[in-house]
Amino acid sequence: MSPVSKRGPRSDASRNRARLVAAAREALAEAGNDVAFDVIARRAGVGNATLYRHFPTRADLLVAVYADEVAALCQRGEQLLGSAAPTEALFAWLDEFVVHVATKRPLALAATEGSDESRTTLFRDWHASITSIADRLVRRAQPALRSDLTATDVLTLASGAALTADPAQARRLVALLRTGILASTGTD
């Protein structure tokens, strides 16, 4: 192995990649998943060759953008794990989760078009990351929740809300969900 291959990407290459992903995220949010590569390269301040060097296909770029979205959602969950109010942390994260599902689902599906094996692997990895943070948030809030509640239950209910409504309605449904999963105080 040569010294160059041991080092990893050059700092300018890493910066270009990050700029391309950020530009793609913005352009995709504005124009949808079919935005032209030229537009993304221009926004990132790089040439088309640089874009294609980092992302040879549209799917490669969409995967990078969606993977960053999942990472940001999970990072937000990590931040909320440090909050003083476990139940509030769980529901703050669920609000963000339903907005993520309601608004990013087309991106996730577009990113994984093509090979069923690739799609399965990507979705499995993304699902595992999201489920892991949800499980930690639910376990932390468990004393205030129904004793039989699992992270899978919470994610399934929240996903259902997100897939049937716009983001604002999905957040409202999560607020309604809250009353169903909190432990009974015996005063109802």
Rank of each mutant, 00 (worst) to 15 (best):
D12M: 03
A183D: 06
F37R: 08
R172F: 13
L90M: 04
A175I: 11
G32H: 07
S14H: 04
V35F: 06
W93F: 07
K104I: 01
V63S: 05
V65T: 05
L62F: 13
D116C: 07
L62R: 08
I40Y: 02
H127Q: 14
L94Y: 07
T120S: 13
G160Q: 11
F97V: 05
H100Q: 06
Q75P: 01
N16Y: 00
R58F: 09
V101Y: 01
V65L: 15
G160A: 11
T112Q: 09
D12G: 00
V98Q: 02
L173K: 06
G77E: 00
R25Q: 15
T131V: 01
K104Q: 13
A108F: 07
R105L: 12
V65Y: 08
L81R: 15
D135C: 03
Q79Y: 12
Q169F: 05
T152A: 14
V70S: 01
S147T: 14
T87R: 14
A13C: 00
F123R: 10
A29V: 05
E113D: 11
S132K: 14
A22P: 08
A89M: 11
V46F: 01
S83Y: 04
A102W: 06
D34R: 15
E69Y: 02
L73Y: 11
V138L: 12
R136Y: 03
R119D: 03
D68E: 14
T120Q: 13
A31P: 05
I133H: 02
H54G: 04
R172E: 11
A23H: 03
S5L: 15
S11W: 06
T50Y: 02
T120I: 06
E88G: 08
A36G: 10
L28K: 09
